[in-house]
């Protein structure tokens, strides 16, 4: 029951959506079933992600309740969750501060706190990559040397100052990099990786539909 029912559901839903491509959407039952099932998937998918947000809140609530190390920060997180979420759950007909439209508390907190916070956190990566460039990127082997040389060429090519420098060596050098490095060797490798990964994804899909792959169910 705990395993068989999910395997049968995965098989049936997978089969319908895989074969629906061969049926006319308006004239056949399978064709009509396909969009309906996809709507169901988006709804259940939404609940799944909703669960993720609830879990984060629960973890922080437990940390505060048990006075774990750093519980003050968890409390701050909890307060932020409620300050952000609660006004958005109330209807905007009650007040323009509720809901999620422009001018609401939800939108204000996102635009002026959450967005710059996330942008800055990722902005710090430039410092780390500079430090890594200095400490870790060593031409220890022929392969590593090729990687570093290509990286240097591409870094020069992608910025005006570097491109001007490359043009001073040979006027067509930037175009050669675009043609032979990016649209030649790089494109070929990416194509190989895309083909390989897509074949892997298709075979994994088949394993899920046939019930061979069950790790997504977890234990128990």
């Amino acid at each position: 029951m705990r395993t068989t029912v999910p395997v049968v559901i995965a098989f049936l839903s997978g089969l319908v959506l895989a074969v629906s491509i061969f049926f006319r959407p308006d004239k056949t039952i399978i064709g009509q079933l396909e969009p309906e099932l996809l709507v169901w998937v988006t709804i259940i998918g939404g609940f799944t992600l909703f669960l993720g947000a609830v879990s984060i809140t629960r973890v922080n609530f437990n940390a505060v309740q048990r006075r774990k190390k750093g519980w003050g920060y968890s409390l701050l997180t909890l307060i932020s969750v409620f300050v952000m979420a609660l006004p958005s759950l109330l209807p905007s007909t009650w007040s323009p501060l509720f809901g999620d439209a422009e001018g609401s508390i939800y939108d204000w907190l996102f635009q002026y706190l959450d967005k710059p916070m996330m942008a800055t956190m990722f902005g710090m990566l430039a410092f780390y990559i500079a430090s890594a460039a200095y400490r870790a990127f060593r031409a220890r082997s022929a392969e590593a040397t090729i990687l570093l040389l290509t990286a240097t060429l591409v870094m020069l090519w992608r910025v005006p100052m570097g491109e001007a420098f490359l043009r001073s060596i040979h006027t067509a050098l930037p175009e050669w990099i675009n043609t032979y490095v990016m649209n030649g060797v790089n494109m070929a490798v990416q194509r190989g990786i895309i083909i390989g990964a897509a074949l892997g994804a298709a075979s994994m899909s088949l394993r899920i539909i046939l019930g061979i792959e069950r790790t997504y169910m977890g234990k128990g």
Partner: peptide, 17 residues
């Protein structure tokens, strides 16, 4: 800024090596 930063990173890789 993008240009200068790229030159800096290339310089750092060179210096490190």
């Amino acid at each position: 800024a993008q240009s200068l930063m790229h030159l800096l990173i290339i310089g750092l890789v060179l210096m490190g090596n």
